[in-house]
């Protein structure tokens, strides 16, 4: 379960998030929508602790993030799969090595690293480019590599920041189908997007952010 309780975030006296309170239940799939600059990315960053809140409390799977020591942050991050908006792929590693890195960090054995990484690449339809480097791939393909890396470790929570931003409608739908499949296996998923088309047939739960304020919470 993800729980935000009166969370606020300021950058140089500008309010980015204001008094945000919501919960996403374990195994739920929710969307955060809103225009650019509404605070969607910041909200996700607070969950994997790239940013820290100025006010309020956040808990994930009953862990209060404010109580975590610096040395415990890596353990939290290993349980959260993140699809970053700018992909954050390492350009001098192959596609396979980028995905495998997430498992090496977890100390997974070499044999499992190989089979899990291949499986994750297969899921996003990129097994054939395993030996290529990210720079040689299209934006959409890079995004799918980022997704493969986020899901390879079997995360409890999956956070995706505009995961279909660079994908054509068909591929976008494939990815959402993949997220649904993961969700049906028990992964809690939170997706930040402004793609209204995507929301049409897929939304289970919608949170709307506007200028840092949660203005609407729709359960469909």
């Amino acid at each position: 379960m993800i729980a935000f309780e009166n969370v606020s975030k300021f950058y140089d006296h500008n309010t980015v998030l204001k008094n945000i309170t919501f919960t996403v239940q374990k195994g739920e799939m929710a969307f955060i929508t809103g225009p650019s600059g509404a605070g969607k990315s910041t909200l996700l960053k607070l969950m994997y602790m790239e940013e820290l809140p100025d006010e309020g409390n956040i808990s994930i799977e009953d862990i209060h993030l404010s109580s975590l020591k610096m040395s415990e942050i890596p353990l939290l991050r290993r349980n959260i799969g993140v699809v970053f908006q700018d992909f954050k792929l390492i350009n001098n590693l192959t596609v396979f090595d980028n995905v495998a890195l997430a498992l090496h960090i977890r100390g997974v054995s070499e044999r499992e690293v190989h089979s899990f990484s291949s499986e994750a690449l297969k899921k996003v339809g990129l097994r054939h480019v395993a030996d290529s480097y990210p720079k040689s791939l299209s934006g959409g393909e890079q995004q799918r590599v980022a997704i493969a890396r986020a899901i390879v470790g079997g995360p409890v929570v999956l956070l995706a920041d505009e995961p279909t931003g660079n994908l054509d409608p068909d591929t976008a739908l494939d990815i959402i189908t993949l997220f649904r499949e993961l969700n049906s296996q028990g992964t809690t998923i939170l997706i930040a997007t402004h793609n209204r088309e995507l929301l049409k047939n897929t939304v289970k739960r919608l949170l709307r952010l506007d200028s840092g304020t949660l203005t609407e919470e729709t359960v469909l």
């Binding site: 994997y48 890596p74 991050r77 290993r78 970053f84 960090i105």
Partner: peptide, 15 residues
Amino acid sequence: EEIEIIKLLGATSGF
């Protein structure tokens, strides 16, 4: 940059 990414993926400082 690479280190920043690895950190976000959950790497310990030892790693």
